[in-house]
């Protein structure tokens, strides 16, 4: 069953030449009630996320939490090692020598936060995903070079092959292509 469905159509894809065209088209598409849409561009297009109705990413919160976690781990590590597990009098410093634990705490805060930023982004984006239906479109190779694409996916409730194609053609694209699944 599912196999059958997948093999038919992923959606329709319109090709544009400039980011502004894409932005305008995306806004129009969203306004027309389509929700399962996505834009593809070789560079980040400001406002495109808003235009296709993507809410603000929660990534900063993740990073903040991981940063705090890293800080706790860093200070906790220093404290546990130096005070609890391996207490040793070094240069007459108190076992709990706060200022000297700060550098490691700081570095681990950064490390945790930075790793969570990068990997959080990849995971949230579902990468790695080497295979994706959009790659089936012949001209899509230029999505990473100099062209801008807008796709409306077939499982959008409003999707209707002919109507949607007409709609996309109305947005003055360079080309509209069917995306095989």
């Amino acid at each position: 069953m599912q196999h059958e469905e997948e093999s038919t159509l992923f959606g329709l894809m319109a090709e544009f030449e400039t980011p502004d065209d894409l932005l305008v088209a995306a806004k129009a598409t969203f306004a027309a009630g389509y929700r399962k849409i996505d834009g593809y561009s070789p560079l980040p297009v400001h406002g495109l996320g808003d235009a296709i109705g993507f809410p603000r990413t929660k990534l900063p919160w993740l990073v903040f939490c991981f940063g705090i976690l890293g800080g706790i781990c860093g200070y906790g590590l220093c404290y546990w090692v130096s005070v609890i597990d391996y207490p040793m009098n070094i240069a007459g410093k108190p076992l709990h020598s706060g200022p000297m634990f700060i550098p490691v705490t700081f570095e681990l805060t950064i490390l945790f936060a930075a790793l969570s930023a990068a990997f959080g982004m990849f995971i949230a984006n579902g990468l790695p995903q080497p295979y994706h239906p959009v790659f089936n479109v012949e001209s899509f190779a230029r999505a990473s070079q100099d062209r801008f694409f807008l796709s409306i996916e077939a499982d959008d409730p409003q999707f209707d092959l002919d109507k949607t194609r007409n709609f996309l053609n109305g947005l003055n694209p360079h080309e509209v292509a069917e995306v095989e699944n």
Partner: peptide, 12 residues
């Protein structure tokens, strides 16, 4: 400020 504190505090 932290640099000043740390360096002076640790050297004592």
């Amino acid at each position: 400020s932290f640099s000043q504190l740390l360096i002076i505090w640790s050297a004592n």
